[in-house]
């Protein structure tokens, strides 16, 4: 039974509020400037396209890297995504942001790449998982903190690789949602636009991706403790 917190615990810092800055938070000015760049690209202005590439290349690469785990593949996909965006910029409606459109291209390319090399077999299993009721007794978020200090991740390449390994065990769809949320900081709506699916599906996938990651990383924490004891 959950206990109601007392008045001293009223103000709970939500760590995610200090998380990654949302790309969409830049405001109307940013959107106008971006729309102008897109329009110039449509008219064949390569300098405008260069600005867009330089603005988003790191984000697109991070997304592709988070999904593929291979820097060379991620670089290839990033290039392909920008080439595709350039080729089809005339058909970009402008109803969604340019970057959500670009992320959609990138996610689709990554999923296609994974499927081509035959690593997409786990999608069906995970898709079944994602349709289960969120919050059912067998499937709740863990209240356990990670046994390692997350701040250490930046210093420890071994920790990073273990986390990336855990990420690689998720299905493409779950990994994509998790990376778009945790790394790129997109809202549910923006993720839904990027992945061309309903917001409810985003929530469900995100929940299961987090739950799986908690399980995978708690195993790792136990391993680490055992290794330390030995």
């Amino acid at each position: 039974m959950a206990q109601t917190s007392d008045s001293s615990a009223k103000v709970i810092p939500l760590p995610h509020q200090a998380g990654p800055a949302k790309v969409g938070d830049a405001g109307d000015e940013h959107r106008r400037a971006e729309a102008e760049l897109v329009e110039r690209c449509r008219q064949g202005d390569q300098r405008a396209f260069r600005t867009l590439v330089e603005r988003y290349q790191r984000k697109v690469f991070s997304l592709a890297f988070g999904l593929l785990k291979d820097p060379d593949e991620a670089r290839d996909i990033s290039q392909e995504a920008f080439l595709k965006a350039h080729r089809h910029i005339g058909s970009f409606q402008g109803t969604a942001s340019f970057y959500t459109w670009l992320y959609r291209i990138t996610v689709n390319l990554c999923i296609d790449r994974k499927r081509k090399v035959g690593r997409g077999s786990e999608v069906e299993l995970d898709e079944r998982l994602s349709h289960r009721q969120v919050g059912s007794p067998a499937d709740v978020l863990s209240a356990q903190k990670l046994s390692f200090n997350p701040q250490r991740v930046a210093q420890s390449s071994e920790l990073r690789h273990r986390i990336l390994e855990a990420l690689a065990q998720l299905s493409e769809q779950h990994r994509a949602v998790l990376v778009l949320r945790e790394v790129e900081g997109l809202s549910y709506k923006e993720i839904a636009d990027s992945m061309d699916c309903p917001e409810g599906t985003v929530m469900s996938r995100l929940f299961h991706a987090r739950r799986q990651m908690q399980q995978l990383l708690s195993d790792f924490a136990e391993d680490a403790e055992q290794e330390g004891a030995e």
Binding site: A2, Q3, T4, S5, A9, K10, I12, L14, P15, H16, G19, P20, R58, F61, S62, F65, G66, P71, A74, L141, S142, A143, Q144, K145, L146, P150, Q151, V153, A154, L159, R160, I163, L164, L167, L178, V179, E182, V183, R210, M213, Q214, L217
Partner: peptide, 29 residues
């Protein structure tokens, strides 16, 4: 206002996970 201790712990666990995933991918990329 409604959060229990356990629910606060869940939020903290989500925060840990966020930091771990964000920093691992960003630093590596």
């Amino acid at each position: 206002q409604e959060l229990s201790v356990e629910e606060q712990a869940k939020l903290a666990a989500l925060s840990d996970l966020h930091l771990a995933v964000h920093d691992a991918v960003e630093t590596e990329a």
